[in-house]
Design a protein around this nucleic acid. Structure first.
Lengths: 273, 273
DNA sequence: CTTGACTCTCCGGTAGGCGGAGGGTGAAAG
DNA sequence: CTTTCACCCTCCGCCTACCGGAGAGTCAAG
């Protein structure tokens, strides 16, 4: 039914290198069936081949070993397959995103950056339903999906037609993790409701640029707008705001998205020359 | 035209963390425009934003810094875009492959491994045109493409109808890099020709299993066949062989591929019990 | 002149292994 | 029965692309 093999043979069976098998033994992910007491030689069973292959496949997909462990140590097949399916879905989403980045890079190659229209605006203070979290850069997409899903739902329930937005703390950009606030403006006399907080956003001047299209090449607007501000304006403290004029909630294609990026400034600059 | 900003501001403009900017400075990938002599503070120019963003995008695509460097330090725009396009093509290929692995894993979940038909065969010695290289596991796909492209071309020119194959040294599996020989059998009196070598493959007994379908789930056959051999046969020294009965050169869909994996054994085992 | 935000350097750690040194094992060949 | 040689062991350091934090200096506003 099953046979005992040396680490080298097992390596050939599974296409995992000997070094890798050592490593998996060390961290307790895949231990040999037994170990010769006198020589210390590892002996694997051929019955271990399938699990080793599963591990290898998951690693091929860049799955972290911690997650791999969760999969192979799942108590029963249902749990395991469930976990696995979730990961596969996630990977497919990442794949799609990578593809987007590639296409966006390609288009960057063909059409150079256009002129950026910067507008200066005073935004009065306003009150908003809000969701505040400490978010990592990598998981911002997910966070936005859930947050604006929730805010959109609330907007529907209460008949609010305002444009949702978010503020991003400096930390979020400079240290890869920081406070992000998703908001939905409401009447100033509105009071708190379930599931979301209430925040008063301060008034201020902003340099504003609009971004048309999907979120993948958002960074270009940031670069261009930020450069503009650095040249012509005095920056003000406070987080950067984004206003989602047209976004995923509006049931249109990505290419139809409209977003305003608002950079806080001290005052509207007087034109030079 | 351009303005000088601190590292923190530059971080906001480019969405690269301060730590990352330090790192890029240290390795000389993206140095600040100047450094304050007394305080040691880095000063970046807004003109550096586009290159920083390019770097960030490439890193988002997992491109190693060495390659990123090659791109950003390209002498002229043509070279740079050319390099970039090549990398993007490569990434798209990898993307496609990852997708295949995902689908294959999914199918592994739904349909369990079937029975494996193992056949024992004596293969006489034969002479073959051959290409021998030390190949890394990761680049085996590429190597096969070029090698069997070449061998196929030669087969066409000389009217050879034999089945191409390859041998894989143990090292190749146990240490991630090792000797691989692509071969195309010819008549025993044939002599050497241009661009390829001539190898005599030794006779021997083999346990052979056929794999139907794309190369993505090749490992299952290895595992199953190897386990079978470990249980019922005495292994013989020498590299594992693969015979490409139907492969990429035959202009059919991946799912139509037929490959034999040949595991060297000492003799044909006598059935137990 | 203080406060607080920002910046500096340096040191150490992370994942997932690879590479090599130095030394013990096992089985077949002489 | 010994030698050879492939195989195996452990241990240590290195790799990439940064992140975290300590300890100390710097800048601008109040």
């Amino acid at each position: 039914m099953t046979a005992s093999v040396t680490i080298g043979e097992f390596s050939r069976l599974t296409h995992l290198s000997v070094k890798t098998l050592h490593h998996y033994h060390e961290i307790g992910l895949l231990a040999p069936a037994r170990i010769d007491a006198s020589s210390g030689y590892r002996r694997y069973e051929t019955a271990q081949v399938p699990v080793a292959q599963l591990i290898r496949r998951l690693r091929d997909l860049q799955m972290p070993l911690a997650q791999v462990r969760a999969v192979v140590e799942a108590p029963d097949v249902q749990t395991r397959d469930q976990t696995l399916r979730l990961h596969l879905d996630q990977m497919e989403r990442e794949l799609a995103q990578t593809r987007d980045v590639v296409t966006s890079l390609r288009s960057m190659l063909t059409l150079p950056a256009g002129e950026l229209a910067v507008e200066y605006r005073f935004m009065p203070a306003f009150r908003a339903y809000s969701v505040t979290d400490r978010v990592e850069r990598d998981s911002i997409g997910e966070w936005c999906a859930t947050t604006f899903g929730l805010l959109g739902e609330i907007a529907g329930l209460h008949g609010i037609a305002a444009t949702a937005g978010a503020t991003y703390s400096d930390e979020f950009f400079t240290e890869e993790v920081g406070e992000v606030v998703g908001f939905l403006p409401v009447a100033p006399d509105q009071s708190a409701i379930d599931r979301v907080g209430l925040t008063d956003l301060p008034a201020g001047f902003f340099a504003i640029a609009r971004h048309d299209g999907p979120f993948t090449d958002f960074d270009r607007v940031y670069g261009a707008l930020g450069s503009h501000v650095a040249e012509y304006c005095e920056v003000a403290p406070g987080p950067i705001r984004e206003l989602y004029l047209v976004g995923p909630g509006d049931g249109v294609d990505e290419s139809e998205f409209r977003t305003e990026v608002c950079w806080p400034i001290q005052r509207i600059p007087t034109p030079k020359g």
